[in-house]
Design a protein around this nucleic acid. Structure first.
Length: 587
RNA sequence: GCGCUUGUAGCUCAGUUGGAUAGAGCAUCCGCCUUCUAAGCGGACGGUCGUGGGUUCGACUCCCGCCAAGCGCGCCA
């Protein structure tokens, strides 16, 4: 938007003054403090310093070579050499009118679209999805939506946990203690019960454990009965996943579970051995430190009692079975060969950081040429804590099931809606409660900086005051309410618009930064940047709404204000949409 | 023990290449509904940004030490 034009002009001016400088490092950013202006650049200070020039003098020279008169008021040089820009209301109005004509919505598609694989959610077969899955699922979905909006080619892939040692126990339980009625009623609960019972028996009895292992070996060997039971377990689990994803509005392009890669695991290990990347040790096969990193940073070493000892990435167990490291290597290999992405993003709990470090380094050693062409990123996140600051659990101490959490969100939201708007028909109240409740849970999860833990609080996420989904949704309903009474018409669009009041200008200027924020959110994999932007937008709109009557105004003033309402609504709706949150016209 | 992450107002949290007087909500106190949804808005109060050094024109942000909390250190994922 405007700041990009400013930036391009500024860079051109820098090239004129300092032809050999790297002008690309000269960036224009919104001023953190509006008193200094709308946009600023502090890059000239650094540039001057590198060249031992006087920063203010350089700023003067660049300013002299700078042509931004039609966009900005006179450019200020402040402090040690900041350049401050004040956008002309006329330039602002022109940008808003272009948006009104549908030419843009304050963001531009990426100049160089990338192919990005996003791996998120990854629930386990035969286990209920729990509150922990909201993080990976919500952040991952927001990221895929943001990348798509910016014009990138996104491939979302749900790497479902559909293989592993737990199936020995599950198979044993299925064959011996399965309750068909319970399975029909709630398949996941029954599978969970099977696992718990057999697992407890295995802990108590080595013979029982042997039985379970025997079932696992049979499954791995392709035994027809075990394979068919296993597939049935996947099928009933998928029904549950689909129900949850349906409620959340989350879609995947692929759901290639761990088992999909089974045929590749043997060849991967053989290749690693053949290339000398992995070697045998105590009957297992593993990748060891190559000594290229200092011990502290080397994930293939671990410190025990003051000594650094090997902590290899095992790719084949001594019993011939494979580890998830092997699966993950095969997965990278497959994704690169199939989609040739520039980037693969894993939205997974921070506790798995050491695993991803090992995985990425191992892959780089295995396929250096391929690894050089792809950016592998672990987008980690912290835990959800209860209001007592301890891990979020039910009163009885169990993990909170995702489905039940969403039910409660809708119930609590319905109570609030009913309290505030009792005259609406119950069907409408329920639909509003669904949107507000789910939105509140998602938004509360996306809002905190993802790397830190956050406290789950029903009251806070459903509050109307503060940075919450209901506050944003309420702002949207106010927009809709105004526009319902007077939609923007062709006649209004033809009118001149004049941004005069401080509230009008502040709101209009905030629109301009939508694209910047979307890009930052994508760049840093941090949807919370967008949350904060939308909260600011809603706040600016609220102030505008309080101080600038729309429907009572006339002429250009009315047209301007209607346009501001319309654009606020569109940016809010678009912003919430990429956070995976629906809007409602009434609350 | 080693490693990773975190430490910002009484509480819950933001803080975009290092940038100008560190922000928001809650809580407490005070204002604003014959005006488009008051589920809102305005104001007051509240800070040695864990701590001690360093780099810099400039540090919540970068570097080092220390303190505290959480997590990880399985031929599980």
């Amino acid at each position: 938007m405007l700041h990009l034009t400013l930036q391009a002009r500024l860079q051109a001016a820098v090239r004129t003054v300092l032809p050999d400088a790297d002008a690309a490092t000269v960036l224009v950013r919104p001023c953190p403090d509006a008193r200094h202006g709308d946009y600023q650049s502090n890059a000239l200070i650094a540039l001057a310093k590198q060249r031992k020039l006087n920063p203010r003098q350089l700023a003067e020279q660049v300013k002299a070579a700078l042509d931004v008169a039609e966009i900005c008021e006179a450019v200020d040089i402040a402090g040690p050499g900041f350049l401050n820009f004040r956008v002309r209301p006329t330039a602002l109005a022109a940008t808003l009118l272009a948006a009104a004509r549908g030419e843009h919505l304050f963001y531009a598609p990426a100049a160089q679209p990338r192919t990005v694989v996003i791996d998120f959610s990854s629930p386990n077969v035969a286990k209920p999805m729990h509150v922990g899955h909201i993080r990976s699922t919500g952040i991952g979905d927001a990221l895929q939506r943001i990348f798509r909006l910016l014009g990138h080619r996104v491939i979302s892939d749900n790497h479902i946990g559909d293989w592993g040692t737990q199936f020995g126990k599950l198979l044993l339980g299925w064959k011996q203690i399965l309750n068909r009625e319970a399975l029909a009623a709630d398949a996941i609960a029954e599978l969970e019960r099977l696992y718990k019972v057999i697992n407890a028996e295995c802990d108590a009895s080595p013979a029982r454990l042997e039985e379970a292992k025997h079932e696992l070996v049979k499954l791995q060997a392709g035994d027809a009965e075990n394979c068919s039971v296993w597939q049935e377990m996947i099928r009933v689990s998928q029904v549950q996943f689909d129900a949850i994803y349906g409620r959340l509005g989350v879609k995947f392009d692929h759901a290639l579970g761990e088992s999909f890669y089974n045929p590749q695991l043997g060849p991967v290990v053989e290749d690693l051995l053949a290339r000398g990347i992995a070697r045998e040790s105590e009957g297992a096969v593993g990748v060891f430190s190559d000594g290229s990193l200092p011990p502290k940073q080397d994930p293939f070493l671990v410190n025990r009692d003051g000594e650094w000892i090997a902590d290899p990435a095992l790719v084949r167990k001594s019993d011939g079975g494979f580890n998830y490291m092997t699966t993950d290597l095969a997965t990278i290999d497959y994704r690169l060969k199939t989609w040739a992405p520039a980037e693969i993003v894993y939205v997974v709990d921070d506790r798995q950081a050491p695993h991803f470090k090992k995985l990425f380094l191992t892959f780089a050693r295995w396929q250096p040429e391929a690894a050089a062409k792809v950016k592998l990123v672990h987008v980690g996140f912290g835990k959800i804590l209860g209001e007592d600051g301890k891990p979020f659990k039910t009163r009885s101490g169990d993990t909170v099931k995702l489905g039940e959490l969403l039910d409660e969100a809708e119930e609590r939201a319905l109570k609030v809606v009913t309290e505030k708007n009792p005259d609406l028909p119950v069907v409408e109240r329920k639909e509003i409660a669904r949107i507000v409740g789910l939105g509140a849970v998602k938004y509360a999860d996306l809002l905190p900086n993802r790397q830190s833990d956050y406290q789950f609080s029903w009251d806070k996420m459903l509050a109307l005051q503060g940075n919450t989904a209901p506050y944003l949704l309420y702002a949207y309903t106010r927009v809709r309410s105004v526009l319902r009474k007077q939609e923007v018409t062709a006649g209004d669009q033809g009118l001149e618009i004049k941004l005069v009041a401080a509230e009008e200008l502040a709101l209009a200027k905030h629109f301009l930064n939508f694209g910047l924020v979307l890009e930052a959110a994508a760049e840093e994999y941090r949807p919370n940047f967008l949350c904060n932007y939308l909260y600011d937008l809603a706040g600016l709109f609220a102030r505008f709404y309080e101080n600038c009557p729309v429907l009572k105004a006339e002429g250009a003033e009315r047209a301007t204000r209607l346009l501001l309402c319309d654009l606020t609504g569109r940016v809010l709706k678009q912003g919430l949409e990429v956070l995976g949150i629906q809007t409602t016209d009434q609350m």
